[in-house]
Design a protein around this nucleic acid. Structure first.
Lengths: 248, 248
DNA sequence: CGAGAAGTTGACGCGGCTCAAACACCGTGG
DNA sequence: CCACGGTGTTTGAGCCGCGTCAACTTCTCG
């Protein structure tokens, strides 16, 4: 069941066996990617979209001076570059963080699928919009939080997303990001990321480890992160926490 | 012709009269919004999507401590909250910057349109993906550029987008953002935004004015901004182009 | 012509960057 | 078995970009 985790926890009704079957039938190939290997390069015209079955992938852009910015961390169940189907090319790079298993879906087959099934089309559309919603929260994170808040916020997001696909087993967040990756995702330097991790460790919130961050005080971490998970659309969309919490 | 500017410059084949007619028929109401008035509040379930005919709108989020972050500046021809159609609610606020004219499209009618016309559906999907692409560039801007670069980059983007819809007439960029808005879009304070504008003025790149920034040295501005417009997909995506042309 | 809002400027402090060095952890080859 | 180099983490010293606080000026409009 390749697409078992697809949109898990993000729809009010889970995908039907029919829909899962249709998606399965659009897969041309399943393959493994070695750690830190690129999968799609910015600007290349692509003929497949890529669904992540297991492992972690990174979406990044590089500035003209070589500065690397991580745009998103993809976890199992994510359609990594589905938007490439509607856009024809990617405006950023995609690469594997650790060893990844991916399914390739030729655009020609997606084309047929979309022509035949409007409901599934809407679902695919929705999944690309979830990406956009996460992008917006990253903009907020980078624009309005300090270094500590940014790292805490990123950890909260990944924790929440891993929980939705059933891959977060307390207290370890099994995503092997290095401190450099956290720095590149949060717009700070490695050195400062390290200082922030120390600070968070001494406050008893999280501990950094190779295999993944260890969460020691999730409630307090959320406070530091100013984290409101409603942008992740758990359950497919309901009331927002910030609103439900009271303030107008 | 309400949708004359829709995706102008973003498709290799312009929208057909049929497609424009279909969109027109989905409009329930056209109305004006006064400056700085909210249009959609975060979390509210919405029944219409909102297309911007003239004026400028802002998409923003507020943190729990009241920090406001601008997520995007919408210009005429933009479908401001089309993603609300596929998601059911918005995760951010939308408000008018100046006096705006908008067209409301009830989701029920969009629903019918989408069920009937797969090509137009793809085009609408594509337009929401353009938003996501801009979001990604904002992430890069906030994560990797300093204050000067961020403001320069924002100005470059707005210039380019206004040019695509034929609304940038040299040398004025007719978007009445205040310095506070630039600050809130770029993750800096008003005071510092002001210093950056002085710096850019003394360097002869741009001058700030109420009615809009005056561009004095576009090539150099792009250098400072590290600006690469490819993320705006001028000319459109390959796959989509074929479809828009009516090829099956 | 008064009042509020937006823009401008200075003084000062802090968060995060830079440079630099040391330390821990690995896989490799002698 | 140890020596070794490479990569990632940790920590310190000093500096600068940007934030904060607080005036003051200029614009706009009633």
């Amino acid at each position: 069941m390749t697409f078992q985790l697809f949109l898990r926890g993000r729809l009010s009704h889970p995908l039907s066996p029919d829909q899962l079957g249709l998606l399965d039938s659009a897969v041309s190939e399943i393959k493994w990617i070695e750690p830190r290997r690129p999968v799609v390069r910015r600007g290349a015209t692509i003929e497949n979209s890529c669904y992540l079955i297991s492992g972690t992938m990174l979406r990044t852009v590089d500035g003209p001076k070589g500065e690397r910015q991580i745009l998103e961390v993809s976890v199992p169940g994510d359609f990594v570059d589905l938007h490439g189907f509607a856009m024809g090319r990617l405006d950023h790079d995609v690469s594997a963080l650790d060893r990844c298993q991916i399914a390739l879906l030729p655009h020609a087959r997606l084309q047929g699928l979309v022509a035949r099934d409007p409901v599934l089309t809407r679902i695919l559309w929705y999944s690309t919009l979830l990406d956009a919603a996460m992008h917006r929260e990253w903009i907020f994170r980078l624009g309005r939080l300090n270094a500590e808040g940014r790292i805490a916020h990123l950890v909260c997001e990944l924790m929440e997303r891993m929980r939705m696909v059933g891959l977060y087993k307390q207290p370890i967040l099994p995503i092997p990001l290095m401190q450099r990756d956290y720095a590149e995702a949060c717009g700070i330097t490695v050195v400062h990321a390290n200082r922030v991790f120390r600070q968070l460790r001494e406050a008893g919130l999280i501990r950094f480890a190779r295999e993944g961050v260890v969460i020691e005080n999730e409630p307090q971490l959320r406070v530091v992160a100013e984290f409101d998970p409603s942008y992740l659309y758990a359950g497919g969309g309901k009331l927002l926490a910030r609103e439900a919490a009271g303030v107008r």
